[in-house]
């Protein structure tokens, strides 16, 4: 499964479990308008670390935090490429 699909399927799962209504996951969707709250992101980042083995949010803050869904995927793609 592509990294993007893995991320999408985990996001959908977290949203379902936490009973959040998810906005359509377009690249320019601001993360803060995705429907996920802080707790959802915390769960998502932990599960993605277990599934793909990286947690770019725990890396030294050299790059800015992602603010859109597209940047979020890129954030993980870059982290996987750097391993």
């Amino acid at each position: 499964m592509s990294l993007r699909l893995t991320i999408v399927s985990q996001i959908e799962r977290v949203a379902r479990e936490q009973r959040k209504t998810l906005a359509p996951l377009a690249d320019d969707l601001p993360l803060l308008e995705s429907g996920l709250d802080s707790l959802c992101f915390a769960i998502l980042v932990a599960r993605l670390e277990d599934e793909i083995g990286v947690d770019p949010f725990s890396a030294p803050p050299e790059v800015a935090f992602p603010t859109t869904f597209g940047e979020f995927v890129k954030f993980y793609e870059n982290a996987v490429a750097a391993v």
Binding site: S38, A42, I43, V45, A46, F57, S58
Partner: peptide, 12 residues
Amino acid sequence: ARKSPIAGAVVV
């Protein structure tokens, strides 16, 4: 607890 960069910790 599991350390979380977003929430400090999450429950596992």
